[in-house]
C-alpha cells in the first residue's frame, strides 16, 4: 500500500505542464478559428436578433418571409437543387462512360485532370466563357441562328436568367460530381463484372446492385453539389450584373452599400444561409456514416 500508488500518480504540476504542452499545438488553430470564424458567425446571429429599438427581436427573421427575401431563398434553393440534380445525373453518366469501359481507357487520365480543372474553373472567367458562347453575340448563339435558323433569344432564352445560370453552373457541377463518384464507380466495376458473369443485363445490374450500392454515395455527393452552388456568388454576379435575386447577391448589395437596408436584416439573411448549409452538411455526414456499413 505505501508505495503502490506513487508510481502511477501524476503530480498536479506535471499535469498542468502536460495540458500546457498539449494546448500549444492547438492554440493557433483555436485562436484563429475563434477570431475569424466563430466570433463573426456569432456576431451575425446576435446582429440578426438585436438592433431594433426594443432589444432582442425576431422581426428581422420575420422579414425574411416578405416576398423579396422569400423569393431570393426560393430562387437560390431552386437553382442549387436544379444544378445539383442535373449535375449529379450527368456527372454519374459521364463518369460511368469512362470508368465502366464504354469509352477507350486512354481517355481516363485526361478526363480526370480536366474534371479537376473544370471543377475549379468558376467565377468571373467562367461567366466570360459562357458569354462568349451563349451570350447574345456568342459563338453558339450566332452559329444556331446563322446556320440552323434557331434564334435562341427570340425564343425567350437568356444566358442572364435562371436557365442560363443553371447551364453555366453545370460547368463546374458536373466535373465535381465526376470527381466525387469516380472512386465509388471504380469500386462498382467489379460487381458489374460479377453480375454479367452471372448472366445479368445492364438493367438487372443497375436495378439490383448498382443503385442500391450507390444510393447513399449519390445522395451525399448531390448534397455537396447543392452546397457548392448555394453559396456561389461570383459567377451569378458577373453573368447577371447582380440582377438575379439570389440570397448571396442580396447580401452583397447590403455589403457594397448599393442598396440601403438594415445591416441586421443582412445578418438574418446570412444566418438563414448558414442554417441551410448546416442542414445540408449534416445530412451529408449522416449518409456518409451509414455508407461505411457496407463499404469497408
Amino acid at each position: 500500500m505505501p508505495n503502490a500508488p506513487t508510481a502511477t500518480t501524476v503530480s498536479p504540476m506535471r499535469r498542468a505542464n502536460h495540458i500546457w504542452a498539449n494546448s500549444v499545438w492547438f492554440l493557433p488553430l483555436g485562436i484563429f478559428a475563434l477570431l475569424f470564424l466563430l466570433l463573426p458567425s456569432i456576431g451575425l446571429f446576435i446582429g440578426s436578433v438585436t438592433g431594433g429599438p426594443h432589444g432582442v427581436t425576431l422581426s428581422y427573421f420575420g422579414q425574411l418571409f416578405q416576398n423579396q427575401y422569400l423569393d431570393a431563398y426560393k430562387v437560390s434553393i431552386e437553382l442549387s437543387a436544379t444544378t445539383a440534380i442535373v449535375g449529379a445525373a450527368a456527372g454519374v453518366a459521364l463518369a460511368w462512360a469512362v470508368v465502366g469501359g464504354g469509352l477507350p481507357g486512354f481517355l481516363r487520365p485526361f478526363f480526370l485532370t480536366f474534371s479537376g480543372v473544370a471543377s475549379n474553373f468558376a467565377g468571373i472567367p467562367l461567366a466570360f466563357a459562357f458569354t462568349a458562347s451563349l451570350g447574345p453575340v456568342g459563338l453558339v448563339t450566332l452559329f444556331l441562328s446563322n446556320h440552323i435558323g434557331l434564334n435562341l433569344y427570340k425564343h425567350g432564352f437568356s444566358l442572364f436568367g435562371f436557365t442560363g445560370l443553371a447551364i453555366t453552373y453545370l460547368y463546374f457541377q458536373i466535373p465535381l460530381m465526376v470527381l466525387l463518384m469516380v472512386p465509388a464507380l471504380d469500386h462498382l466495376k467489379q460487381w458489374g463484372e460479377a453480375a454479367s458473369n452471372l448472366g445479368a443485363n445492364s438493367w438487372q445490374f443497375w436495378w439490383h446492385i448498382g443503385l442500391p450500392i450507390l444510393r447513399l454515395p449519390l445522395l451525399g455527393a448531390t448534397l455537396l453539389l447543392f452546397g457548392n452552388s448555394f453559396g456561389a456568388y461570383a459567377t451569378a454576379y458577373a453573368l447577371t450584373s447582380g440582377m438575379i435575386n439570389l440570397v448571396p447577391i442580396v447580401i452583397g448589395q447590403e455589403l457594397s452599400g448599393n442598396v440601403v437596408f438594415s445591416p441586421n436584416l443582412a445578418d438574418a439573411l446570412a444566418v438563414g444561409m448558414i442554417v441551410i448549409m448546416i442542414t445540408v452538411f449534416a445530412v451529408y455526414l449522416i449518409t456518409n456514416r451509414n455508407e461505411a456499413r457496407w463499404q469497408r
Partner: peptide, 8 residues
C-alpha cells in the same frame, strides 16, 4: 476480391 454484392 470475391465481388460479393454487399447489399445482398
Amino acid at each position: 476480391s470475391y465481388a460479393l454484392f454487399p447489399n445482398m
